[in-house]
Design a protein around this nucleic acid. Structure first.
Lengths: 137, 137
DNA sequence: CTTGACTCTGTAGGTGGGTACGGACTTCAG
DNA sequence: CTGAAGTCCGTACCCACCTACAGAGTCAAG
């Protein structure tokens, strides 16, 4: 399997070289093996990992949370119950986000329709979408 | 209708007093009227507005984007078509987020189930959830 | 009518998440 | 075998988003 230099990884993931090193320092991507010259020699899956990080950031997760998400796996020697509990907590968190986004979408659709009918909305219509807010962490 | 001091608003919205003033400076909440003493005198809906801002932040929107969201309304004197276009762009954005979150939830559920069956997952199972990533802005 | 909690303005400091040097070394295309 | 482009490490800088003073004035319970 072909490997990548840091520049190739960065280009494919749509980030800067410095960002890749930053993520490495923060433990978000594993330290890759080095060539004799000292150059980092990335396995191709690193690109996917960085794309995941970017996307998760756009979904409002902090790097710390993303780190936790990336740690999730069933490890034979470790407490399954614990992994399961935190996975389920994350699911609840995610479902809250989905619900909020749905309400926002609804509000925007209503707004768009009001636009068509030339029904002026004096108040900000999107506000009401999250007013009876629940969810959150 | 009862009005609130800045402290009462902050407590109800779960933020600090300084944050309320910061949001005012940034134009995210309107400048409230003042009492003779100079104290800010908030209408109750300010609380909802701040709750909206917090929630939208957790969904990965920047304050700039949140500002735009809060501006959305059908204004009789302004181009409806333009408002409609940007509302629809936001809807697409939101739908991408919902889709990504759904894929993450799926991955976490599968992980949880693998846990129950004591099926060790050597690889990080959540990664694959967003690997074939689309969406984004 | 005091005392302790609250508010005012202004400015400075802090954290998360990058981004950009600088000076030396490596790679590779021509 | 040379030059341009890429990489190394370290440190310093930057932007978004708060958060924390300082010093002076306000409010309200006892």
């Amino acid at each position: 399997m072909a490997t990548f230099t840091i520049g190739a990884v960065a280009r494919r993931a749509g980030v800067g070289v410095e960002t890749v090193r930053f993520y490495e320092r923060e433990g978000l991507i594993p330290e890759p093996p080095r060539r004799p010259s000292g150059y980092r020699d990335y396995p191709p899956e690193t690109v996917g990992r960085i794309l995941f990080i970017r996307r998760a950031k756009e979904l409002g997760f902090s790097l710390k949370e993303i780190h936790e998400l990336l740690e999730f796996r069933v490890h034979p020697r470790r407490s399954c119950a614990r992994v399961q509990r935190s996975a389920e907590a994350k699911i609840v968190d995610i479902e809250g986000k989905i619900a909020s986004l749905r309400r926002m979408r609804r509000a925007l659709k209503d707004l768009s329709k009001a636009c068509e009918n030339r029904t002026p909305t004096t108040e900000c219509p999107i506000l009401s979408s999250l007013n009876l807010a629940q969810g959150g962490r």
